[in-house]
Design a protein around this nucleic acid. Structure first.
Lengths: 163, 163
DNA sequence: TATTGTTATACTCTATAACTATA
DNA sequence: TATAGTTATAGAGTATAACAATA
């Protein structure tokens, strides 16, 4: 039988938060001191977009500039990120991962991915295909139009989104 | 080609947090005063499991008892939930939605589901089937064994999980 | 004046540790 | 002693409003 958009929405509303809990717990468990999800995602973004400005991070994470500023404060204090003002426009902030930031992100990501892989290792390859297909559909459906880049990325470039 | 468990994990790690941001934003946008996701999920749980005890909520949300206690504090203060001690074992706390709690949850849920439905209304019915199938697989993969009920639910019952 | 960030303030989220009350 | 919750404390997440600096 044909599922309505509402059926689909209902499933998402129930399952996504549950998965998120598991992922968050794992990310925290596999990093010391613990990375929160916003921190983890900010590091991922900066790893893909070296030299992004603060507003880029805020856009990616759907945060206010204020919230993003505080988030970056914490990352800078933990020596995971550097924050410098752009000489060509001193209102702008240039953000980069430190070596420690790259290492910490990679380690947390690897450990968490391995945990998740363990969870899906028990299902059939067919089911894994189903999950991957659905994630790719959802990725398109949920990602807003990528906002214009106005940071230090290559001119005209957009954010580098995974895969 | 055959996707590895790791491929699957990588997709999940990227897409789930992004979806979660969207869902959270919508839940907040469609409730006044705003419901946070933990509050929203606690109300959903109590709607399905009237008379659950605090530990049940903590288990469902993967929170410590302490965190759950504070969460419920807020819901009680907002008159969304009642909290009473169980006469048969006064260590235990019996939680129930108030009429306002039911109403507020239902309204936020409806509005959010409609938003999500709008997002998936643009894709094909086939793709919606793919999403629903994947969510059901993921629901099984990610839900831990349902913990024993020790609250006020029917004897021997387990938590009522959606669908 | 418009843009980019920061600071002040005020919540909630979440954990650990120490505690109370009950069984 | 073991179980169910609460309180104290602390750092992070997040928003709005007010501000500073730069263009």
């Amino acid at each position: 039988m044909k599922p309505s958009p509402r059926d689909c929405a209902t499933e998402l509303l129930e399952v996504v938060p549950m998965m998120m809990r598991v992922i968050r717990t794992e990310v925290r468990a596999h990093s010391t001191p613990e990375l929160t999800m916003p921190q983890f995602r900010a590091l991922a973004f900066l790893g893909r977009n070296e030299g992004a400005m603060l507003g880029d991070v805020a856009g990616f994470l759907t945060l206010t500039l204020s919230a993003a500023s505080k988030l970056v404060d914490g990352l800078v204090n933990a020596d995971l990120v550097t924050r410098e003002s752009d000489p060509s426009d001193r209102r702008k902030i240039v953000l980069k991962l430190t070596a420690a930031g790259q290492k910490k992100y990679a380690a947390a990501r690897l450990a968490t991915a391995e945990f998740l892989a363990g969870r899906v290792a028990g299902i059939s390859a067919t089911d894994r295909v189903r999950i991957i297909d659905a994630m790719q559909i959802l990725h398109r459906v949920f990602s807003d139009e990528p906002p214009e880049t106005n940071g230090h990325l290559a001119k005209g470039a957009r954010y580098k989104l995974p895969s």
